[in-house]
Structures are given as C-alpha cells and as structure tokens.
Design a protein around this nucleic acid. Structure first.
Lengths: 285, 285
DNA sequence: ACTTGACCTTGACGTGACGGCAATGTTGTA
DNA sequence: TACAACATTGCCGTCACGTCAAGGTCAAGT
C-alpha cells in the first residue's frame, strides 16, 4: 500500500490527477482511511491506471474511458469509437497541413515585403441564395453604375425592404472586357420568403428582373473593398496575390455584394464584398 | 451602422463572439448608445474583424492578436511567432501521425481477436539513475531468486531504507540462456544522496556490490507484471506483440523494477515493472 | 512532550474561447 | 398599445487538470 505521493511517483502522474480520477469515479484507491481521508493505493492497481492513461493517449475522453472500463460498451462500439477518432485526427491533420502552408506563405510575405498584409482575404462557403436581378449581357462599367443606382432606389420602394437583403452584382464574363461585360444586377432575397418562385418585375427602363437561384459555392475567396468603386482593382489584386501564394485558382462567376451600397450613402463610404470562387491548384511540391 | 445581429450575420460570426471581443478590448463597435448600451458596428470594420479572424486561424491566441493589432510588436517578432507556431503545428502533426498508427494497430487487434488487450504497455523515458548492485555474469533464474531474497533483506537493514528506492534487476545477456544469465541485482538509489559515489559493500556471501550509474533511456516500453515470477514470460510476450504491432524493436539491456518485491510479501502478491528499451523500426510502408 | 518538515486533505479558482441561458430593457411595426 | 424580434449584462459550463490556500496527519529527532 502506497500513499498518494509515492504511488504518483511510481506511476509518473500527478497526485492531483489521482484525486481527480477518484472524484470522477474513474480510478479509486483500494482503501481510504475513514479517519484521515488518506488515499491508499496498491501496486496491483498500476495496470488499471496504465490502461486508463493509454486510452487517454488514444484520444478518448475520460467520460468515454469511464464507460469503457465499466464494461458498458461492446467491442463493436469501441471499434466504432476508434475509427471515428482516427477519422477525426486525420481531419485535423489535413487542416494543420493547410495551416502550415498558410503560415509559410505569411512568413514569406513578411520576408519579401517587411510587413503583414493581405489579411483581409477570407475563405468562406456560401449556400444557395435566391436573387432578383436583371442581366446585361453586354455593358460597360459606367452603365452598370447608373443601373446600380436605379435598381437600388427603385426595388426597395417597390417590393419593400424586408424581403431584400444586399445588393449584388454577378460577373458572368470570364475575361475582363471593359465594354463587353456580362453582368447581372439585383438584390439577394431573404430566405424566409419562399413564395413567388418565378416572379418577374419590370424596371422603369423596361428591363426585366427575374427571381432565380444563385448556386452554392464551397470555397469562396472574399475580401472587403472600402471606398470608391474606382479603387476596386486593388482588392482584386489582393485576391490575385493571395491565390497565387496559397495555391488557389479562380473558377466560376465572381460576385460583388454591396454591404454599404453607393446609392444609400456617399460613394467613398461604399463597402463591397468581392467574392471569387476558388479551387485548390493541384499541388506540385 | 448595423446593430450587432445584422453585423454578425454579415460577418458570419456569433453575436456572442462580438460581445466577447468587445469585452476583451480586441474589437470594439464604432459607437455604443449611452442610453441603451446597444452596440453599433460599421461595415468599414469588417476588414479589421477579418484580420482578427485570419490571425486566429493562423493559430495565434487572442492575446497575441490584441498586441499585434495594437502595433506593439515588430515584424520580426511576428515572424518569430509564426515560425514558432509552425514548428508547434509540425510537432503536433507528428504526434498525431503516431497516434493514428497507434489507433490503427488497436483497430486491427480488435478485428483479430475480438477484444481489447495489451493496454498495459506504456512508453516512458527514464532518466539516469544510480544503482547499487552485484553482477552475476553467469547464473540461473533460481539462483537469482534466492539472491533477490538475500539482498532484499540484507541491504535495507545495512544501509537504512531511506537511501534505497526499488529493487531492480538488469539483464545484460542479449539472448536468453536459461543457465547462462548475465544479470545485475541491487537497489536503485534515491537521488537526493549525491555522496558516496564509489561505495563498495560486501554481502554476507562475499559478493561485492558497487554503486554505479544506470544510463538514461529515451524510450522504454514498460509493462506491469503481477503475481508469481513464473508467469513473467506472459508479460514479455505482451511486450513482444506490442513491439511488433507498433513497429518497435528491442535494443539494450532490459530491466525489472520490483515495485512490490517478493521478499516483503507473498510471491503471488509481487508487482514488477518490466522495462525494455526500444527503438522505432525503420518504416517500410 | 514538543517541534519540525514532509505529506495529506478538501475546496476554490484559473485556464481559452467562447456557447447557452435567464432576467430584463429597446425597437419597430400593426 | 401590444407584440415579436431584437438587445443588454451576467453567470454558469465546457475539458482535464494546475495551482494555490487553509488546515489536518505522520514519522523522526530533540
């Protein structure tokens, strides 16, 4: 019989841990002196403790171990737990690998340029969304800007602000042709309204707006652009550098979500989220 | 200006997180209504929040981020932090790889044999230790057992129990020759005594015990053996199966540490830790 | 018998980054 | 004016312990 101190030295664990496991009912001393409360452990308990520590090492929680020890779990369930644990660890392993890549590119950036930047690029995934928009298969940027004003002022008055979320632009043209843009202009719809699936609506200038579904995108590289629209190219440049450094390439139509649109306040107060769908470039280390 | 709910939706974080960051002073709303306490956020703050989230993604703590944002940290320090983080992640990555191997072998064991076992094998590293022992270059197991009794009873009486730790056997013979064993028998010494470096001491039967240093071992596969010495081979078998399953092989002299020695209680109450130094077998997946 | 120092006890608080809940106050619309 | 939807602060819980703090116990030496 050892007192807790000596036993903890033999087992190479802390006394606190032994008391904690006792309190949890996970591993109890063979005898407790009723007068003093001293815990007395027997050397025969060492394998039991080691089993617990080994299971902990496997990544099981103390709660799982307790139920396992108590024998309330079939071997099939144990195997299930281990398989799950394995999948879990493999997942975090992949995540950590990308974290390392991420960190490496940051370190290189600091080395190259002496400071941090591009922190504004955020990867997100967006769900399916509904959109009411008019498509302009061949237009120019400046024409877009007047249309943004028109639609932005007309639609909320016409439909009521509650149904509408942010103003959005979808860029369908694959390459940038400054007077042959294929864009869609309109509003994202709040998802709580699931009626009027096929609504159409005419703008004052005669253009038709249709309700449609915007597909979900799994990985979207996004950045916030602040200020006048003319400086938008800088944000695109940031996204481009980021994609290059992190091994992504752009794939399908990009979007701009107007968090603070130019028709509701001054143009230099504008806030736009630029969203570029991306995919991992196949690695070639 | 958005209230916390809308802002949290735009930024895709919880309101709770925004309040938490406010409380930490990490990210504050642009305006707080003094009457109601309502927080008002501006869209212009989105890049700032994204920066914070990106840094969090890199694995920095909120505290580090706060100091980084406050600008109290030079770029060199940031690089240092990132390099450290990278090393840290690489470390846990390696650990998780071995965890996966470990789990895989467990899963295979369950498949093979329908139940869990070998949980009693524990990897540990042992430091340098001092030992007072007599070497028997050619002896048998039964001779050893009488010697254990002799030394175990004689030495504590002679030297005083305080200086002595556990009784130990060191097996120098590389292969198992049941009547040509090369073993060392004696006591581990408590490290608090650093005097008598070269003490020698004669046993009643004339054999000499010498104080010496037992080298440290980095990875030791250990298991607890309970009960009579005759069943010791089972514990060795357990260690062997474990080593095979986990890709280790045995290297230098093995040890047995008598936690509950046979001379202080009944032989079937004996508790011995068997320690086999191991190395990773070079992988060949 | 006393002291000393090492050991043990319970209990409470802290960790990191929030999630969840409760009690209460505010806003905007019908 | 009523009501739903929003907001606030504050507190507890997470997970596996580490770290005190205040006090009780034990063995050895004086």
């Amino acid at each position: 019989m050892f007192r807790i101190g000596e036993f903890s030295k033999i087992a190479q664990v802390s006394g606190r841990l032994l008391r904690y496991y006792d309190a949890l009912g996970l591993f109890k001393p063979t005898r407790i002196d009723l007068d003093t409360g001293y815990r007395y452990y027997s050397a025969k308990q060492l394998p039991e403790l080691n089993r617990i520590l080994a299971l902990k090492e496997l990544g099981l929680t103390l709660d799982q171990i307790a139920r396992l020890i108590a024998g309330h779990i079939a071997t099939d369930e144990i195997r299930g737990m281990l398989v799950m644990k394995k999948a879990e660890i493999e997942q975090t392993l992949r995540e950590e690998l990308t974290r390392i890549h991420y960190i490496e590119s940051r370190i290189n950036q600091i080395d190259d340029e002496g400071q941090l930047q591009d922190y504004e690029v955020v990867l997100k995934s967006v769900p399916v969304q509904r959109l009411i928009a008019a498509r302009e298969p061949s237009t120019t940027l400046s024409a877009c800007r007047t249309l943004v004003q028109e639609i932005g002022r007309f639609l909320p008055a016409r439909i009521g602000g509650k149904a509408l979320s942010h103003f959005a632009m979808i860029f369908h043209s694959d390459l940038w042709d400054s007077d042959g843009l294929d864009v869609e202009l309109g509003f994202l719809l709040n998802s709580n309204l699931n009626s009027d699936m096929d609504m159409e609506l005419a703008l004052p200038n005669g253009k038709m707006m249709r309700v449609q579904e915007l597909p979900a995108v799994e990985t979207m590289a996004t950045t916030m652009h602040l200020g006048i629209p003319e400086s938008g190219h800088r944000s695109y440049a940031v996204l481009g550098r980021w994609a290059e450094a992190n091994g992504y390439h752009f794939v399908s139509p990009s979007r701009e979500i107007f968090i603070q649109p130019p028709y509701s306040s001054a143009e230099d107060e504008m806030v736009v989220e630029i969203q570029l769908p991306v995919k991992k470039t196949p690695e070639q280390d």
